[in-house]
């Protein structure tokens, strides 16, 4: 398997990372090296094997449905690039 330039463009779009035309060829080449390595795994017969998502088979814990976190909005927003009246500012999305 080998990724085309269009594949790289498509993945970059999905990942929300701008890749310039100049960077595309080198990115494609390196990703194909990585996928070359990954390819070894695909031929392995894994019929009947249960996928392992986690090291410990633990159940997610439940807790009482009550507020536990104090209000620290001002501190959280102090590290944001742009806020106003307690809201995060982003570029206009609706004209």
């Amino acid at each position: 398997m080998s990724l085309t330039i269009d594949d790289v463009r498509r993945i970059a779009k999905l990942a929300r990372i701008a890749v310039t035309d100049d960077e595309l060829a080198a990115t494609q080449q390196q990703l194909n090296r990585i996928f070359g390595l990954i390819e070894e795994m695909r031929a392995v017969d894994t019929t009947g094997i249960e996928p392992m998502a986690h090291a410990q088979d633990v159940m997610l814990r439940l807790r009482e449905d009550m507020a536990t976190a104090p209000d620290r909005r001002a501190e959280w927003q102090a590290v944001a690039p742009a806020v106003e009246n307690g809201l995060y500012l982003v570029p206009k999305v609706i004209e």
Partner: peptide
Amino acid sequence: GVRYGHRAAEYSGLADMYEQTRA
């Protein structure tokens, strides 16, 4: 680029802000 960390200085809209910020 919304809640913390770097945000690109120049972008054309929200999607472009994400893409430039992450690039």
